[in-house]
C-alpha cells in the first residue's frame, strides 16, 4: 500500500475517469475530513472538503494560519491518512509516481550534494543510472544549479536550497506536484525571483500543481484557480478562477489594475477568516 493516493482510489471505488482532455479531473477529493487527537481531545483539522482539480491546473490553496491547509496537502501526499472521505488521483501512467512534494522549509538532505539530492527520487524508483544523469542534469539546468551540482547544501543560500527541492520534485516527473509554502522562508526579493523561475519551469511542463500559501499575492501570481479556506476547522470557502494568460511575467502582471482587483477580491474572502483565526489564537492563550 505504498502510494496512498492510489490506495484511496481503490478504497473509494471511484472508476477511473476518461482522460485526454484538458478538463479531465486529475485530483478528486470527496468528503474529506481529518481529525487529530491532541492530549486526548479530538481536533478537527479538515471538515468535509470536496474538490475537483483539473489536469494541468496550477491550483493554489490560500488560508489563514492553522486552517489545515498543510494537513490537506499531507493527505494528498500520502503522509497522513484521512479520517473520512477519499482522495483520488487519476493516474494516467502508472510508471510515474503519483505525487512529489516540495516541503516548507529546508528539506533537502544536508549529507548529499545538490546533484545527489536532485537524483534522490529517481534513485528510490530504481531508474537506470544513465537516465538519471540526463534527467538530473536537465533539471539542474532548469533551476540554474549546474554550477553547484557538487556543492553541499550548507554552501548554498536559502533560495538555492529551495530550488534544489523543486528540481528534486520535478525530476521524478510526478503526476501531481505538491508545494507547501515553498518560498515562505525567503525574503521578498528572492521570492519574486523564484516565482518567475517556477512559472518558467512550470510553463514548460504544465504539471498539475497543488500549491499552498498564506500569501494572496503569491496565489494570484502563480495560480490558475485559487481556493480560499476557512479558519479552523478547514473548509473550502470559495474557489476563484484567475483569468491571466500565460506565460506570465511577475512584474508586468503586478503592474496591471486587474491584478490589484483580484488580490483585493480574494482578500475580501480571506479577511474574516484571518480575523477569526486570530481571535481563536487569542482565546487559546487565555
Amino acid at each position: 500500500m505504498k502510494p496512498s493516493a492510489s490506495s484511496a482510489h481503490q478504497r473509494g471505488g471511484v472508476v477511473a475517469l476518461p482522460n485526454g482532455r484538458a478538463e479531465t479531473s486529475k485530483i478528486r477529493i470527496e468528503n474529506l475530513s481529518k481529525e487529530f487527537k491532541l492530549r486526548g481531545k479530538a481536533f478537527k483539522a479538515l471538515d468535509t472538503i470536496n474538490l475537483d482539480i483539473a489536469s494541468g491546473t496550477f491550483f493554489v490553496i490560500v488560508g489563514p494560519s492553522g486552517c489545515g491547509k498543510t494537513t490537506l496537502l499531507r493527505v494528498l501526499a500520502g503522509l497522513e491518512e484521512p479520517t473520512e472521505g477519499t482522495v483520488t488521483v487519476n493516474r494516467t501512467e502508472l510508471h510515474r509516481p503519483s505525487n512529489a512534494m516540495v516541503f516548507q522549509g529546508d528539506s533537502i538532505f544536508p549529507w548529499m550534494t545538490v546533484w545527489e539530492n536532485a537524483a534522490y527520487g529517481l534513485r528510490m524508483r530504481k531508474v537506470p543510472k544513465a537516465e538519471i544523469r540526463d534527467i538530473v542534469d536537465h533539471y539542474l539546468d532548469c533551476t540554474r544549479l549546474t554550477k553547484f551540482a557538487h556543492s553541499f547544501p550548507h554552501q548554498l543560500s536559502g533560495g538555492m536550497r529551495q530550488r534544489v527541492s523543486i528540481a528534486r520534485a520535478f525530476a521524478t516527473d510526478p503526476e501531481v506536484l505538491l508545494m507547501d509554502e515553498p518560498f515562505s522562508a525567503l525574503d521578498e526579493q528572492n521570492r519574486t525571483l523564484l516565482h518567475q523561475e517556477l512559472l518558467r519551469i512550470w510553463e514548460q511542463h504544465k504539471k498539475t500543481v497543488v500549491f499552498i500559501t498564506h500569501s494572496v499575492d503569491e496565489a494570484v501570481i502563480l495560480g490558475d484557480r485559487i481556493m480560499v479556506m476557512t479558519a479552523h476547522p478547514g473548509r473550502a470557502k470559495v474557489t476563484v478562477d484567475v483569468p491571466f494568460e500565460r506565460p506570465r511575467s511577475v512584474l508586468e502582471l503586478r503592474a496591471t489594475p486587474e491584478y490589484g482587483e483580484l488580490v483585493y477580491r480574494i482578500w475580501g474572502y480571506l479577511r474574516e477568516e484571518v480575523q477569526s483565526a486570530a481571535e481563536e489564537a487569542e482565546g487559546g492563550r487565555k
Partner: peptide
C-alpha cells in the same frame, strides 16, 4: 522532515536506513 521526504519518494525501509 527528512523522514517525510523519504516516505514521499517511497523509499523502502532499507533505503530509509541507508540514505536517511
Amino acid at each position: 522532515i527528512y523522514l517525510d521526504v523519504g516516505k514521499n519518494f517511497q523509499a523502502s525501509r532499507w533505503n530509509v536506513f541507508r540514505t536517511i
